[in-house]
Design a protein around this nucleic acid. Structure first.
Length: 943
DNA sequence: CAGTGAGCGAGCTTCCGCTTGACTT
């Protein structure tokens, strides 16, 4: 912290080549070192700067907050805030670490800095880039002059200019980045644990992913609310005569009253209130269609308008992903991977950008190419410049375009590129060239016609529209794709015959067409990226990974290209909306960006901003002043603590589906450990994994409850003739003798053994299971029976009130009396029975002299010296772990102290979890409906 | 989500944004 400002000071007196600095430090003559972010960029710039410069890359950020417990330095492990990586009690000071995979990069840079005459920090000119530059300074602390160098386009002129026009590091921009980073960490690492405790372990929440998930869930909810409605219209094929071609027209009004069409139905699928339209129904439509065939229609109106369309701006990351999805059917990830290869091979400019700006070089190249290929008349007199339209754009780069001062055409590219790369390059090339071409012009025509069936019946008004492009302009190079196929059709050129008011045409054929209103479409990767960008959520470098994250967490799955939310997502979004509404507000990021701009411009400071977010607004200060009302009133920390006590997990994990129309009982989906299941009173049924939530209607739920889909009939019990079913339950798969509907007696059930798989289970296996418990024999000493049971913890023997666990599944069916007696003869402890042989003996601990062995335990492999045990960590391989490593782990474990005295906080949390589980279990067995109160839970967890 | 009896090495999961690695034959 203290060195930040002074280290960032830049020696203005030194010449660009740093001669004076060398003299001052007495260093050998070296070359200036330029550090950029990307290796590919380093290569390009190195070529432009020539041999007098050394150019190297940082490969992105070099330091960050520790990601996992493993990355927290030992010295900080005991700190109360270590888990967050931010000392929230002391000015939100971040703990930065160099990630293991970045060590090599940092070492290399450090070597180069030592040899350099001066250092140019040439990372991107945005918050993140400025921050990377600052971290480089902090980590490398060069003893030679340091200059901040910036450029927004990679052309020889721009680079040369940037070398001359360097500036100082902007600490405020760095502060803004750091504030952003800390807020995201606090949000993610405070809220995710709430989900672990209330919904499922390993889930996550974050400023970006939670909003993305919420959008997808809200869309699904809208689909669930949607009521499909039917409407009809007429399509007439009209013959103008005199050899002119026929044309098509659609009904728009009957008897002077406008007819409803798709767009008159709102998002709920119902007609907007007060809509003055009439819904044409089937019988009337059919009767009209029939009666209109062969009838004359008179042209009542002809409207011609000039048509002008302009090209779309050049690609930025989000639009590239959208168009590659529409036109090439690429996923966001595939698009970015292909673009990365094109960029690295020098075909295109940088692919992670939010700027539509083209460099002068690019403007000239695009215009020259357009003129050459399509003629000078297809290029406007002045270059087109596109205004920034992206919310929170940082605009550190150019738009995505073909690289170089002369674009290589797709034909030229085909010599070296193929497949995905060629296709994406062609897309980028077309879009770039088209963006500098002239508008397309033409005319559109709207024609109205009126005709009547036989006398006494109402008049029917038809409409036809056509459009003619007279000058294609940019359309010759590129047409933007659309998510809406109907809109796409409408874009097509349609020619109408020359018509004038008063002309009469004849209806050759009239068809009555039925339409169903469609629910709002699910998000695709491309439309989600578009929606996120519109809200300013996420950055070009993260769009693809946001989708990967929500897929990975099990919030969303892909059905074709559609993103379908899971019921887990419903539970999580429901929790967040209800208890952390401000955090999942769609405007949260935009408000945050405004604040960060304030920090970057010096209007506000990061510390009070973070304090307010985390600890709440100072007393007396109106909390509603900023967007995050409730958060700022209480502060995130207290909010989380409060909610941990108050949130009823059972309620959060219940998603209401509706009421059973027969019994009036509510039907809910509950998110359980084994996935979602339906519940109606005491009845339960699994929800198929591939069932989209909007298809789980009350009717469908009733069907599933009537015949739980997970069930499989294995066969018939030869003795009783009853069916043997394979089912899935709370404790995993089990078999059942007899159907559930058999009145009165409870059907006999038995869990599968650990070694059995439901997919391959046979009737024989099932019958053997149902025959359990098995009488092994009678103890000759006491006369007591010995039974083999299959229990919660696996197979075991029971003699009176005594039990012994069995080692293997097959003993359950095969163990004899003698062997059983031998087991009972041994004491009950695991050690007494048959201590599993150690996996490996590692040798003697150099510190204590105790032998260390590697064992396999419940939680995986661990090492022990007989008194202290330590689990292997991530990255430790049981096959190859050394004595030294084992001794180190044990020493760490001993240093942490005995379990009772260690981290009171963690222990308390563990106890609380246990207590909660007990209450939960008790609650479940109690009559349904008597929900635990907050005070009960508090007592339980306060224990 | 069915219902069936232990005692015992805990420690970790998670955020958003920058950027590409890759120990061998």
């Amino acid at each position: 912290m203290p060195t930040a400002r002074s280290a960032a000071r830049i020696d203005r007196s030194s010449s660009p080549r740093g001669r004076s600095a060398r003299a001052a430090t007495g260093q050998a003559a070296g070359k200036p070192l330029v550090i950029v972010e990307s290796p590919a960029k380093a290569r390009t710039i190195a070529a432009m700067l020539g041999p007098d410069f050394v150019v190297e890359s940082s490969v992105g950020h070099i330091r960050d907050l520790p990601r996992r417990a493993e990355e927290i330095p030992k010295a900080y492990k005991a700190e109360s805030w270590a888990r967050l990586g931010v000392d929230v009690e002391n000015g939100f000071k971040p703990l930065y670490v160099v990630a293991p995979e970045k060590r090599q990069v940092v070492e290399k840079l450090a070597r180069l800095v030592e040899e350099a005459s001066e250092v140019y920090l040439a990372t991107d000119e945005d918050r993140e880039g400025e921050s990377i530059a600052w971290h480089l300074m902090e980590v490398l602390h060069p003893r030679v002059p340091v200059k901040r160098m910036v450029f927004h386009e990679i052309t020889p002129q721009a680079i040369q200019r940037a070398v001359q026009e360097w500036r100082e590091l902007d600490r405020r921009l760095v502060d803004a980045q750091e504030a952003r980073r800390i807020l995201d960490r606090l949000y993610g690492y405070e809220v995710s644990p709430v989900l672990w405790k209330k919904v499922m372990p390993r889930l996550s929440a974050g400023r970006v992913q939670s909003v993305a998930t919420r959008m997808i869930v809200e869309r699904e909810r809208a689909r669930m609310r949607f009521q499909a409605a039917e409407w009809w219209d007429l399509q007439a094929s009209l013959d103008p005569g005199e050899g002119e071609p026929r044309f098509e027209a659609q009904s728009v009004a009957v008897d002077g009253q406008a007819l409803a069409s798709g767009r008159d139905f709102g998002p709920e699928g119902t007609l907007a209130q007060g809509a003055r339209v009439r819904v044409l129904e089937g019988p009337e439509a059919r009767s009209l269609a029939e009666a209109l065939v062969g009838r004359p229609f008179e042209v009542t109106q002809v409207q011609e308008r000039p048509l002008r369309r302009s090209p779309a701006p050049p690609f930025i990351t989000s639009t590239l992903q959208q168009e590659a999805a529409r036109k090439l059917r690429f996923s966001a990830q595939r698009t970015m991977a292909v673009a990365q290869r094109l960029y690295e091979q020098g075909w295109i400019t940088y692919m992670r950008t939010d700027s539509t700006t083209l460099s002068d070089e690019a403007l000239a190249a695009a215009r020259a190419q357009a003129a050459e290929l399509y003629g000078p008349d297809h290029v406007p007199p002045a270059p087109r410049r596109y205004e920034k339209k992206v919310k929170n754009a940082q605009e550190a780069h150019e738009a995505i375009r073909p690289a170089g001062e002369r674009f290589r055409t797709p034909e030229e590219a085909a010599a070296s590129l193929s497949g995905d790369e060629l296709r994406l390059y062609e897309l980028i090339w077309k879009r770039t060239v088209a963006s500098q071409m002239a508008d397309a012009t033409g005319t559109t025509a709207q024609v109205r016609l009126v005709g009547t069936p036989e006398a006494g019946r109402p008049a029917v008004e038809l409409a036809a529209s056509g459009s003619v492009i007279t000058f294609p302009g940019f359309l010759r190079a590129y047409v933007e794709g659309s998510d809406d196929p109907e809109a796409d059709l409408a874009e097509r050129e349609v020619r109408l015959p020359r018509l004038a008011v008063g002309d009469v045409v004849r209806a050759e054929a009239v068809e009555a067409r039925s339409h169903l209103t469609q629910p709002p479409a699910r998000f695709t990767e491309a439309s989600l990226v578009k929606a996120l960008e519109e809200q300013g959520v996420g950055r070009p470098s993260t769009y693809a990974s946001i989708i990967a994250t929500i897929l990975d967490r099990g919030y969303v799955w892909k059905k074709g290209s559609a993103l379908v939310p899971t019921f887990t997502a419903f539970a999580v979004v429901g929790l967040l909306e209800r208890y952390f509404a401000d955090l999942v507000d769609y405007g949260f990021t935009a408000a945050m960006e405004d604040d960060l701009d304030g920090i970057a411009s010096g209007e506000r400071e990061a510390l009070p901003w973070l304090t307010r977010f985390y600890f709440g607004a100072p007393k007396g200060q109106a909390a509603e002043e900023d967007g995050a009302g409730r958060i700022s009133a209480l502060g995130l920390r207290r909010l989380v603590a409060e909610h941990l006590a108050a949130i009823d997990a059972r309620e959060i994990n219940s998603i209401p589906i509706g009421e059973d129309p027969e019994s009036g009982e509510p039907i809910v989906v509950r998110v359980g450990r084994y996935g979602p299941y339906l519940q109606r009173g005491e009845e339960r049924a699994s929800v198929p994994e591939d069932l989209p939530p909007d298809e789980l209607t009350v009717e469908r739920a009733r069907e599933l409850l009537a015949a739980p889909s997970g069930d499989r009939v294995l066969g018939e019990d030869p003795e009783s003739g009853k069916p043997v079913l394979l089912r899935s339950g709370r404790f995993g798969p089990y078999v059942q003798l007899g159907g559930a509907e058999e009145s009165g007696e409870k059907p006999k059930t038995a869990s599968l053994l650990a070694s059995m798989r439901p997919e391959t289970l046979t009737l024989e296996d099932a019958l053997a299971l149902l025959a359990l418990p098995r009488l092994v024999g009678v103890d000759p000493a006491s006369g007591e029976e010995i039974w083999a049971h299959n229990g919660r913890f696996g197979p075991y023997l029971k003699r009176g009130s005594e039990t012994r666990s069995l080692e293997r599944d097959d003993q359950l069916l095969g163990i004899g009396l003698e062997e059983a007696l031998a087991l009972f003869a041994q004491p009950k402890t695991r050690r007494g029975r048959q201590p599993a042989a150690p996996l490996r003996e590692l040798g003697e601990d150099p510190e204590t002299g105790q032998p260390i062995v590697l064992r396999s335990g419940r939680f995986g492999p661990y090492v022990t010296d007989g008194t202290t045990n330590a689990s292997l960590r991530r990255g430790d391989d049981p096959e190859t772990v050394t004595l030294e490593r084992a001794a180190e782990l044990l020493a760490e474990r001993r240093a942490a102290g005995p379990p009772a005295r260690r981290s009171t906080r963690a222990t308390k949390a563990a106890k609380a979890t246990k207590a909660t589980k007990v209450t939960k279990a008790a609650k479940t067995t109690r009559a349904a409906g008597s929900r635990g109160t907050g005070s009960t839970r508090r007592r339980a967890s306060g224990e």
